[in-house]
Amino acid sequence: MIRLKNIHRDFQVGDQSVHALDDINLQITAGEYVSVMGPSGSGKSTLLNLIGILDHASSGQYFLNDQNVTDMDEQQESRARNQHIGFVFQSFHLIPRLTAAENIELPLVLAGMPPNQRKHRVDEAMQSLGLIDRAHHTPDQLSGGQRQRVAIARATITEPSVILADEPTGNLDQKSGIEVIDTLEALNDKGITLIVVTHDPQLGKRSPRSLGMVDGRIESDESA
């Protein structure tokens, strides 16, 4: 489902060129649960941004569902992000002035779905994540765990093929963190591909497949 071939990503910092990603070759099949581990600056976030089509490779090729992402124009990229990819961020990234329900339906709004069709799907998503009584609360009225569950509901509302989670438990206490991970894993059980970036070894151990990154390279690729 995800295929990276000889991916390089270079940043120019002053006079120096930094290799954030150095010749990455990676294949992830549909329904996999992969954790990406590594020290900070190892390129794990860059890898995630690249898979999420937020960032572009300096060279190499990226296929998502057999489509060559490298050839896409800006409009196609946006559509691909909207349809195929769900993001879960460490800092939630909810829009403070919108209610939980409005935050969750945002990807559908951007996709141009009419309101009556959206309502049904938003209700369903909130039901399954236990958020139904929080529908009309704004983010500042929700707990951290609830906020992240709203963000997960938002990430899954378009029924994407892959969820990309960058340190999803980084801003949460342990109990809420485990709840969030349980939620994500439950989604993976239903068939969604799940890629989690973390530097928490406990979290890394939970996934069947674990990638270890150092200096922009995949140093280890272990399957349990």
């Binding site: 999420g52 937020l54 800006e74 409009q75 990229e77 946006s78 559509r79 992000r81 909207n82 349809q83 993001f87 990234h93 829009i95 945002l106 990807p107 951007l110 996709a111 938002r154 378009t158």
Partner: peptide, 16 residues
């Protein structure tokens, strides 16, 4: 800025 970044991540094109 962060909100605009989010909109982009959720699939908003430049035109949108």
């Amino acid at each position: 800025i962060a909100e605009i970044g989010l909109l982009k991540a959720l699939g908003a094109s430049r035109r949108k």
